[in-house]
Design a protein around this nucleic acid. Sequence first.
DNA 1: GCTTGACCTGGAGTGGGCTCCAAGTCTTAG
DNA 2: CTAAGACTTGGAGCCCACTCCAGGTCAAGC
Lengths: 138, 138
Amino acid sequence: MKLLRIGEVTQQLQLSADTLRYYEKIGLLPRVARTEGGQRLFEPQDLSRLRFIQRAQKMGFSLDEIAHLLDFRAAPQQAKPQIRRLATEKLALIEQHVQDLTHLRNELTLLVNLCTQNADGCPIIEGIEGKEGDTRAS
Amino acid sequence: MKLLRIGEVTQQLQLSADTLRYYEKIGLLPRVARTEGGQRLFEPQDLSRLRFIQRAQKMGFSLDEIAHLLDFRAAPQQAKPQIRRLATEKLALIEQHVQDLTHLRNELTLLVNLCTQNADGCPIIEGIEGKEGDTRAS
DNA sequence: GCTTGACCTGGAGTGGGCTCCAAGTCTTAG
DNA sequence: CTAAGACTTGGAGCCCACTCCAGGTCAAGC
């Protein structure tokens, strides 16, 4: 069981020392072991927890939500319904977000293409101005 | 030419009075006309500017970028290259974002579906744990 | 022992886009 | 004229996830 000092962890996980201390401060990481002199010694389960945090974060969960997920992780069998609810909600948000962005992308692509072809006026400005990518006149 | 007080604008555009004052403060809106008593009177061009801001914002432009777009709007013909660059950059960002989110959505959908079928263990937690939705082992 | 670099703490600052507040002024209906 | 409600200002606070700082301590190589 090898203990890592904070600098080694920052290298392995690509997190800043400040971030690690911050996670501990807000309770996302339980208080990490220390040397006699008070310097942090990260244990393997800390690393595993941190990797979990990193992955959950990449999946769009907030630190707050991740705190819950970490609780659930200790007893996944009982927490399954909550976990599924959290994941489903997150999924719905992501889906909405993807749709909005896709719509936006289409509009903007249209405008940029028009701009490339069109010699006079500025279709992009006009597009924002009048929003004619959308059918309702507003 | 009808002048609107701030309350009427908030109703028409669904923006808070604070937001309108904030836009004026940061210069996104030039100083709005006032009554003798000092209360704001919004002119039609202010409203048009605000609508432009709202639409540009929905298209993912930051207030900072919108400030540029508004400058460009005054002389679209000369500014065309800059406008196109701004829009193209924004488009690239959006596209990247859509891809990331789509990937995420797929992963999460998979996990939620697994969770619905699978009686023991928690595929969502395990999925975050081991990230097996992704093929590279990390 | 000394130096150097890694590490510690508590607390303040960042950014983007608002949002809220207090204390005061203006406008308008009755 | 009065009262109520709309509006004014400057400035502080909020959210999130850090990030930076000063001033001090620890660990390790020579």
